[in-house]
Design a protein around this nucleic acid. Sequence first.
DNA 1: CACATCAATCGGTATTTTCGATTTATAAAA
DNA 2: TTTTATAAATCGAAAATACCGATTGATGTG
Lengths: 293, 293
Amino acid sequence: MELRQLKYFLKAKELLNFTEAAEQLNISQSTLSQQIKQLEDELDIPLFNRIGKRVNLTEAGALFADFAFQSINKAQDGLLMLRDLHNFQTGKITIGVTYGLRYVLTPALIRFATQYPQIKIKIVFGTSEELIDKLNHLELDFALSFFGDIAVEKHFDYQNLFCSPMTVVTAPNSALAQKEMITLEQITQYPLVLPAKGYMTSKFVHDLFERHALSPNIAIEINDIPTLLELVKTGNWHTILAKTSVSQKDGLATIPLLGENMDRTAMIISMKEVYQKKAVKEFYRILHEEINL
Amino acid sequence: MELRQLKYFLKAKELLNFTEAAEQLNISQSTLSQQIKQLEDELDIPLFNRIGKRVNLTEAGALFADFAFQSINKAQDGLLMLRDLHNFQTGKITIGVTYGLRYVLTPALIRFATQYPQIKIKIVFGTSEELIDKLNHLELDFALSFFGDIAVEKHFDYQNLFCSPMTVVTAPNSALAQKEMITLEQITQYPLVLPAKGYMTSKFVHDLFERHALSPNIAIEINDIPTLLELVKTGNWHTILAKTSVSQKDGLATIPLLGENMDRTAMIISMKEVYQKKAVKEFYRILHEEINL
DNA sequence: CACATCAATCGGTATTTTCGATTTATAAAA
DNA sequence: TTTTATAAATCGAAAATACCGATTGATGTG
């Protein structure tokens, strides 16, 4: 049994005239006859009564027609659904994001969710390690993260979003807050609270100090960034983050770090060879647009 | 899009391994690959992500799978339904019957309906003309009627049920009721109530008198047999019917008609070349059985 | 009765499915 | 890293089958 045969059958049923049905189906009458016969053989029951040159539905034919119709319709509906998906009338996207890029995501997220309310969106916050892992398991459509060694795998696609200088983040009333610039060496004087292992920023900072043969005063490592920022606000500790990781609303001061390669690159990371939903591509577009505002 | 491809797709989706899926489908891996690809081309969207040797469902694939499954299921259900029909677990039969044969039908009807309660039965009473017309329009599975010229068409099948002598039907208290036999000529003396035109019996009686160059005293023609019998019960009128058309319960006397060819043959009439449902064949069997009791 | 019509059938062609072998890519193991 | 095993894609040939045109047979119609 094939959908083709069911289509032929329904047309023949509609017109009760093989010749005309064949014409409308753009096949020859002999083909239609043969295909109907084949279907009947498989079903082991005649679908039509042939009385001379007249054709009538048998009871079996009448009953079977409903099923044939529904079978064809289900397949057709599936196709239509996919067309809709193409035009993202429906669907779901899952986005992984590091805390450091939440201010980048938010405006694009708001715009996208407003513009395409039919599309369900899931946001997963996590460390770079976690996000990479989820990407590999196809649990994310893409992730927003800073570029780093961990994530350099050949089956990933990388799209640059922007560069952001690393800054020391501190409370506005702290001694540091008045500085225009700061060097790595100077930072070692202050107690730091840093993201815990797993965060790209953590690795970046550790590598940075190691490269310059300096040992920072890491007072606290913490795996929750909002809490980390709360600690910084007390003025007792400072941290190192990309400038865009801190919002003006946070009420914190950011002091650029002096030196080479003190920029971090924010990226969209996605799996190569995985079908990119149109909704996802549209999200990319809005992300880039929001960033360039 | 063909059901075959949908089946292949669902198996591949189930196992997420083309080689194994192909084995279970008893096709080669290359065939499976090609058919999946063809389906994807038609849907214009990949159903699987191929990451190296790994295969994963895309979102489109996951969504489409439901439709594919339902499409296949509907077709399969149709087939199952037809199998059931074969074994008459379901279905419907429509039987045409003349009033004259209602006592023949009833016991078979009761037995059949009791034994196969799932099968819907529709009984259509009508004149022979009406029944023949309905048979031609495939509105009946078969008709029970007496043999007559009208119904002799080559695209009909005839099965003899039994022969029944024509009798004069009269009230038990009427003068006629005492007779053991009666001739046509004698009948002309009595006022008759006969079935209206359209009934085979009507034609038969008219022809009969005409053949013998007699003119009967037809007081009333009526197209409702129960009412006709009520009229006969008054004793004022008499009628001519096959013996089996009158039940003992009716409380009427039947007097055989003397002469040649005074028998009527009850028959099952059905369309040639029209698929005979198993339920119908079973009904035939029960009919014959009940008659031979 | 001649004629037109319609479905079935037949033989041949075109298309499509299928297969086996090979290639390519990747994951796992050494 | 290199080797090995594994899985999907690809290629060319084959088998299967859908398709067509012509014909036949049967039937309804003028």
